[in-house]
């Protein structure tokens, strides 16, 4: 399939960009546009806030892997995530920024950013009523992000 090019190895030296727009019969939806840090910071709240849409989408994908099959459900998922991120930015912008910037600096490890994460979590609970819960955590013990003195913590304070 792939040709061997002079400069780019087996890959074409320049990425092919498909410039054709989406067919007009597909309703437009904005993409989320957030990079990995903010998405990771918001992930558990996306999971909590958009649970129905996410599960609906994944059940739809389970029916058929064809990309065309679940476009409608996918738009709902994206709109919900955009809605959540907008709300986060309206209500907890400072804590959100602090947390994802910490994640960017600290190799995107949650355990290195607990201080910022606790502030974000409490803000999200107060303003939006969303809590971070990790499914499958052992019952009766604090979840890993709530442990006061964990073994793995940042060496630099």
């Amino acid at each position: 399939m792939s040709q061997v090019h002079q400069q780019g190895g087996v890959y074409p030296p320049k990425e092919y960009v498909e410039s054709a727009p989406m067919p007009a019969n597909i309703p437009h939806v904005d993409e989320v546009g957030a990079t990995s840090g903010p998405l990771k910071s918001a992930s558990f709240f996306i999971g909590a806030y958009c649970k129905e849409y996410n599960e609906d989408f994944m059940l739809c994908k389970n029916e058929n892997r064809d990309p065309a099959h679940c476009l409608k459900e996918g738009r709902k998922v994206t709109r919900c995530a955009i809605d959540l991120i907008t709300k986060m930015r309206e209500n907890c912008a400072q804590q959100f920024d602090a947390h994802w910037e910490c994640l960017e600096k600290r190799n995107q490890e949650f355990y290195l950013c607990r201080k910022q994460e606790r502030k974000l979590n409490s803000c999200m609970f107060e303003k939006l009523g969303l809590t971070k819960t990790i499914p499958g955590s052992p019952a009766g013990q604090p979840q890993i992000h709530e442990v006061q003195n964990p073994i793995y913590k940042p060496i630099q304070k």
Binding site: S43, F44, I46, L71
Partner: peptide, 19 residues
């Protein structure tokens, strides 16, 4: 779980692009 919560979002975006 952080990744699992993001899978529908990322898949939806990728599906649209692929379509």
């Amino acid at each position: 779980w952080s990744r699992i919560h993001l899978v529908p979002l990322l898949t939806a975006e990728g599906d649209r692009d692929q379509y």
